[in-house]
Computed example of a mutant assay.
Amino acid sequence: MADIIVRPARPEDKAAWRDMRAALYGEDPSLLTDVEGYFAGDPMIAAAFIAQDGSHVGFVELSLRNYAEGCVSSPVPYVEGLYVAQGARRRNVGRLLIAAAEDWARTNGFTEMASDTQIENEASLGAHQAYGFSEVERIACLRKRLD
């Protein structure tokens, strides 16, 4: 197995990053727009890191949120997306991506980070806890359509 390299996202990663986003979020036309926006300076994604082992095997994206549950500072670097390709799981790729995100946050003067996952996603919850995150709250999000 090749060594995992984690580095900031670069313009030549656009297609692979978009494909990984599609694997995580599903097909959506905004997936490539968000990636393009990142390289154009759109602040929606504050930082992005890519993991490679010869091919693209994962990414992490951070935004800056004014508020995050359980956090005392503002703004807070927030893990908006974390993805590891199926064949690269259990190889510390997620841990390396989170470490890169933490390094970026510390370098930029932040003292905490936040993230979320669906309540029923035990694998993601376990991974977050293994990365050092602590669960601070559980919520049910509700919606009402107004016609």
Rank of each mutant, 00 (worst) to 15 (best):
R143N: 00
A99G: 07
A85W: 05
T107N: 09
A130Y: 10
A105K: 04
D103R: 12
C141W: 07
R143L: 03
Y83S: 01
A105I: 14
Y131E: 06
T107D: 07
A101K: 12
E80L: 03
G126K: 07
E120P: 01
N108I: 01
Q129R: 10
E112M: 09
A130Q: 09
A105R: 01
D116W: 00
R91W: 13
A114R: 06
G132M: 10
C141G: 02
A105D: 04
Y78M: 10
R89H: 14
I119A: 12
E137I: 13
A101H: 07
S124T: 05
R90T: 13
A100H: 12
E112F: 14
R106F: 14
A85T: 09
E137Y: 06
Y78T: 10
V136K: 05
R91K: 15
E120S: 02
E80K: 06
G81D: 07
E137K: 15
N108R: 03
Q129N: 10
E120N: 02
A123Y: 14
T107K: 11
E122Y: 03
T107F: 00
N121I: 10
A85R: 10
S134P: 08
G126T: 10
R143G: 01
S134L: 10
L125Q: 12
R91T: 15
E80Y: 09
G132C: 12
S74P: 08
L97M: 05
V84W: 09
N92K: 15
F110G: 01
R143A: 07
P75N: 13
R143H: 04
N108T: 00
A114L: 11
A114I: 07
Y131S: 00
F133S: 01
L82P: 05
E122T: 03
Q118T: 04
L142S: 02
A101M: 06
W104P: 09
R143E: 06
S124A: 08
I98E: 08
T107W: 07
Y83I: 08
S74D: 08
L97T: 05
D116R: 10
L125A: 08
W104M: 04
T117K: 04
Q118R: 02
C141P: 00
A114K: 08
V79W: 07
L142C: 03
S115R: 01
G132Q: 11
A85L: 11
V136N: 04
F110Y: 06
R91N: 10
G94Y: 09
S74I: 11
S134K: 10
E120Y: 05
W104G: 08
A127T: 06
G126I: 07
Y131H: 11
L97R: 05
G109N: 02
V136D: 02
R95L: 14
H128V: 01
Q86T: 15
I119N: 02
D103Y: 13
R89C: 15
A99Y: 09
A114Y: 05
G132W: 04
D116Y: 03
G87C: 13
S134A: 11
A140Q: 06
E135W: 00
S124I: 02
Q129E: 15
A105T: 08
A101P: 12
T117P: 03
I98D: 05
L82E: 03
S124G: 01
S115F: 03
R138Q: 04
G109W: 01
I98N: 09
I139L: 06
A99E: 14
R95S: 12
V79T: 08
R91C: 15
G109Y: 03
P75L: 13
A105V: 06
A101R: 04
R143D: 01
L97P: 14
R138Y: 12
R138L: 05
Y78K: 07
